[in-house]
Design a protein around this nucleic acid. Structure first.
Lengths: 348, 348
DNA sequence: TTGAAAGCGCTAACAG
DNA sequence: CTGTTAGCGCTTTCAA
């Protein structure tokens, strides 16, 4: 009644170990170990014994201690992924698919989200390394090379996804081509409205980030094709936050004294600010501007046909990623995957 | 040149251990251990020595092996969470906040997503237990009690979030009240359109799932208040998939030969199917039905004022959850957190 | 066919 | 103030 283990939870009930099982079966711990991890055939352990041990393990609710197992075999089945945010479909799709593919390979995926914060990223990487991950994928990392260096020092294989680094292999979207395709579409859609020669307004994204830089290039490419040069006034990039986008648009209108007829938005989360700005702006009551967004959200696509979206090809990106992981190849450079423009047919 | 360790990656470069550090510093491994895990004050180790060791660790890129540490101290700093999907803002918010709060407590969060699949859920739970998580949170689990039983057998503290169980403490939303409030709003909004006495159509959600059951109750409550009895024909619940919702709506119209004027949708993912159905349905070209959705997506809210949404109070839910975790209390039953109706003001 | 034994890297008494 | 020692639970030679 006053027993030590009758506390508020059964947390300290000792777990069954292979020693307990060995005792129950009247065999040695190593036999139990062999049976439980499938190496018993080559140890030529009796079929009958194997079954007996399996049954016992079942009955006792035995569960392998991966901590001990990993320590002993000096490796782990952990594969880590660092991801910036969970607030959009793109990263959501990446994570879901990553987990499924990792599990299919007998790896245990551990994901952690770092809020686009460079410090948190490397702290998380350190922790994952400390937990002995066998591989570490840095997705959309602010400073992928720093993570790669940490991994290298610890002998952990590392890869970059979504945002490239120079030290580890990277799988990213073909941002430039995707942005150009998207820009062309908005240019065409807004043809009647835009004052001739006036470029689209680019909003959202980090100016220092590879993807944003490439998207701006593609954006300029498409303009150049029809003889428009885009000056820096029309590129409003600071970060991905909705409020920043909204503020930048207000500022733009205040200084230029005209509202944009067409917008290129760098991410769905920035789009949130852009849409808020549009719907609360009386000037757009009659006609909303044409919008193109790099990244896809099915609901947005459906609800507003003025918004054209680019979908990154997550399945192909992850095929490429796991291709490298499976081969343990660290020497492949940057792989670029094409994107797809999604447009709900105007007929529907 | 043909050295064993000059393979395609540096994966096998041996990691620095406390023994290496001890050797370099000319002290014992236990001293190093004490310094590195902060217990050196009570061991009254010299300040100078401590600093020297810290520096050495830095230089050598030492990283604690949590596998060994956990094994030794017979505990781990891992806190596991199982989550059904990453395809909506609700679970995204839960996971982001969960991670932050876990880290704030010195725990290492590991999340895994189980696709609303009961088998995957328990497989994932087993794996987490095997990896020695100290706590396991089952979020939106199909069969929480089964997970709790596994945890109990392993001495792991477990908790339920979003969907309640009977064996472990649970934090959930007040689904019934939330659904009633939402229903009232849609009833009022669609007052002019609905044929008198005709109920709203309820779409999406699993009929066996606690939350769906409660939401249906709230839905009926609100109808009852204005004297409408809802027959089962008006409850179309099978699962959360967009296609299912769309199919159910088609079937409804086919048999009832009238289109609904107002809809209550069980989740944002089901809403995707509903919206697709609405926008591709020529019958709604002039006026879309009024929609209420249990769960919130900022973009949807902004883009369509016909859609009213309920936001679950993730911060408060997680406060409650960590309240229980911090106290290691397994005896608190079900905590229900109120929800909030989000409606973009029609003036804007 | 099977068992004994050493060791993975770290921690925590306990003895100095 | 510091080192020695005995594990934590599992894996894996090596002997038998």
């Amino acid at each position: 009644m006053a027993g030590k283990s009758s506390g508020k939870h059964g947390g300290s009930r000792k777990r069954t170990t292979i020693y307990d099982l060995a005792e129950l079966a009247g065999v040695s711990p190593s036999a139990v170990s062999a049976v439980l991890n499938g190496t018993w055939r080559k140890r030529r352990i009796g079929q009958a014994l194997a079954e007996k041990i399996e049954r016992l393990a079942q009955e006792q609710g035995y569960s392998l201690n991966m901590q001990a197992s990993g320590l002993s075999r000096e490796k782990s089945d952990l594969i880590g992924m660092i991801v910036p945010k969970y607030d959009n479909r793109y990263f959501g799709a990446i994570v879901e698919r990553f987990e499924a593919m990792a599990r299919a390979r007998g790896l245990f995926p551990i994901i952690t989200c770092t809020q686009r914060d460079a410090e948190l990223e490397i702290q998380a990487a350190r922790e994952m390394i400390s937990h002995q991950v066998a591989y570490l994928i840095a997705t959309g990392a602010t400073d992928p090379d720093r993570i790669t260096r940490l991994c290298r020092a610890a002998g952990v294989l590392s890869f970059n996804l979504d945002l490239p680094g120079t030290l580890a292999p990277s799988v990213i979207s073909d941002n430039r081509a995707g942005a150009a395709a998207l820009t062309r579409l908005i240019l065409r859609a807004s043809e009647g409205r835009r004052a001739p020669g006036v470029p689209i307004l680019f909003v959202g994204g980090r100016p220092t980030e590879h993807n944003t830089i490439e998207r701006i290039k593609g954006f300029r490419d498409a303009h150049a094709e029809i003889g428009i040069t885009v000056d820096d006034d029309h590129i409003l990039t600071e970060d991905h936050a909705p409020d920043t986008a909204q503020g930048a648009l207000d500022a733009y209108v205040a200084t230029h004294r005209r509202s944009p007829d067409a917008l290129f938005v760098g991410s769905t989360i920035a789009l949130e600010g852009v849409v808020r700005w549009i719907v609360t702006n009386p000037g757009f009551a009659s006609a909303r501007p044409h919008v193109g967004c790099f990244d896809w959200d099915p609901m947005v696509s459906l609800l507003d046909r003025n918004i054209v979206m680019v979908r990154q090809d997550v399945p192909r990106m992850l095929e490429a990623l796991f291709g490298m992981i499976d081969g343990e190849r660290e020497d492949v450079g940057v792989i670029e995957i094409p994107t797809e423009v999604i447009q709900v047919s105007p007929s529907g």
